[in-house]
Amino acid sequence: MKIPKTALVFLVAVCVVVYLTYSKHHHDDKSPALLKHPLLSAINGFKRPTSAEVVSEYFQYGIMFDAGSTGTRIHVFKFLLQPHESPKLAHETFKAIKPGLSAYADDPERCAEGILELLDVAKADVPDRLWDSTPLVLKATAGLRLLPGEKANHLLNKVKEIFAGSPFLSRDDSVAIMDGTDEGVSAWITINFLTGGLHAADPPTVGMLDLGGGSTQITFSPKDEKTIQTSPDDITSFKMFNLTYTLYSHSYLGLGLMSARLAVLGGTEGQPLPAGQELVSPCLAPDYTGQWEHAEVTYALRGQKAGEPMYESCLKKVEKMLYKKVRKAEDLSSMEFYAFSYYYDRGVDLGLIGMNDFASW
Rank of each mutant, 00 (worst) to 15 (best):
Y58V: 00
Q60F: 08
M64F: 09
M64S: 09
F65L: 11
D66H: 01
A67D: 03
A67T: 03
T72R: 09
I74W: 09
H75R: 08
H75G: 02
F79A: 10
F79W: 14
L81F: 12
Q82H: 05
S86P: 08
S86R: 11
P87E: 11
K88R: 06
H91C: 14
E92R: 14
S102L: 09
A103D: 06
Y104W: 14
D106R: 00
D107P: 00
P108H: 12
E109T: 13
G114W: 06
I115M: 06
L116F: 07
L116R: 15
L119T: 01
L119E: 08
L119I: 03
D120N: 13
V121K: 05
V121L: 08
A122C: 15
A124V: 00
D125F: 15
D125R: 14
V126G: 09
V126P: 05
D128W: 10
W131F: 12
P135A: 10
P135S: 11
V137T: 05
K139L: 04
L144R: 06
R145Y: 02
L147T: 03
G149K: 10
G149D: 12
G149V: 08
A152Q: 13
L156V: 13
N157K: 04
I162Y: 07
F163L: 04
A164I: 12
G165Q: 14
F168G: 01
L169V: 08
D173S: 14
A176E: 04
I177P: 14
G180P: 04
G180W: 05
G180C: 13
T181I: 01
D182W: 02
V185I: 15
W188A: 11
I189C: 13
N192C: 00
N192E: 06
L194H: 03
L194A: 07
T195N: 10
T195F: 00
L198S: 15
H199M: 07
A201W: 06
